[in-house]
Simulated assay, not measured.
Amino acid sequence: MKRLLLILCSLLAAIGLPACDYFAVRDLKPGVSTVAEVRARLGEPQTVWPNADGTTTWEYSRQPQGAECYMATIGTDGVLLRLEQVLNEASFARVESGMSQDQVLRLLGRPASRQHFALKQETVWEWLVDRGDTDAPRYFTVSFGEDGLVRGSGRYSRPRG
């Protein structure tokens, strides 16, 4: 049964549907799951972030179609320490003016889009945070100045059209 589910999830992931993340994440257990199990369930990370304590954090962004970004912290022994979905209010509240683009990437993962506005001399990154199955999709945005530092952040909904 698990093999059939894995095949189905692999097929859905191949066509761009993040539907199987629920099953993959549910099966991963901090303190128990190994690097091999994380890779088997979530695939290769988009980014590997080194941490000061020797651990690494693997980024699994589901942007631009998905509204999730999982950060899996792997211990020096190759065991999963923590698995977090970081596109949430607590993470958004940590975005502060003056942060660098790398700091924001480390916190929220790869954005759904990046747009440069020459007249405003700013770049805006956005993350899909709610697909809006019943209403308009919602986004979290971060604005950067020409110096690459955060100017501000916000939220908006994009009406379906």
Score class of each variant (00 low, 15 high):
residue 98 G to E: 06
residue 65 Q to R: 13
residue 91 S to Y: 03
residue 47 T to W: 10
residue 30 P to W: 10
residue 24 A to Q: 09
residue 128 L to Q: 03
residue 85 Q to E: 12
residue 6 L to D: 14
residue 16 G to L: 07
residue 49 W to G: 00
residue 154 G to K: 07
residue 113 S to D: 14
residue 66 G to V: 02
residue 44 E to W: 03
residue 77 D to W: 06
residue 46 Q to H: 10
residue 141 T to G: 06
residue 25 V to Y: 10
residue 40 A to T: 03
residue 13 A to R: 13
residue 79 V to A: 08
residue 90 A to F: 04
residue 117 F to E: 12
residue 129 V to A: 03
residue 18 P to I: 01
residue 76 T to M: 12
residue 130 D to N: 15
residue 6 L to G: 03
residue 160 R to I: 07
residue 157 S to H: 11
residue 111 P to R: 00
residue 140 F to L: 07
residue 149 L to N: 01
residue 150 V to K: 04
residue 62 R to H: 10
residue 97 S to R: 14
residue 161 G to L: 05
residue 144 F to W: 02
residue 63 Q to G: 09
residue 149 L to G: 00
residue 112 A to T: 09
residue 146 E to V: 06
residue 10 S to H: 12
residue 23 F to W: 14
residue 50 P to D: 12
residue 38 V to L: 05
residue 139 Y to L: 04
residue 83 L to C: 06
residue 93 A to M: 09
residue 20 C to L: 05
residue 51 N to W: 07
residue 73 T to P: 11
residue 56 T to P: 08
residue 44 E to C: 04
residue 131 R to G: 08
residue 63 Q to W: 02
residue 37 E to V: 13
residue 36 A to M: 08
residue 149 L to P: 00
residue 24 A to H: 12
residue 78 G to D: 06
residue 76 T to K: 14
residue 35 V to E: 13
residue 23 F to P: 00
residue 10 S to Y: 04
residue 79 V to C: 09
residue 151 R to K: 15
residue 135 D to N: 09
residue 99 M to H: 08
residue 127 W to G: 00
residue 126 E to F: 01
residue 55 T to F: 08
residue 128 L to Y: 07
residue 139 Y to G: 03
residue 136 A to D: 15
residue 54 G to L: 11
residue 38 V to C: 05
residue 88 N to A: 11
residue 132 G to T: 04
residue 60 Y to G: 01
residue 143 S to K: 09
residue 107 L to F: 04
residue 101 Q to N: 11
residue 74 I to W: 03
residue 19 A to D: 08
residue 42 L to Y: 10
residue 118 A to I: 02
residue 70 Y to K: 01
residue 20 C to P: 00
residue 27 D to N: 13
residue 55 T to C: 14
residue 59 E to H: 08
residue 2 K to G: 15
residue 137 P to R: 06
residue 149 L to S: 02
residue 137 P to I: 04
residue 124 V to I: 15
residue 35 V to Q: 13
residue 90 A to S: 14
residue 12 L to T: 11
residue 55 T to P: 07
residue 67 A to C: 10
residue 52 A to L: 13
residue 54 G to W: 08
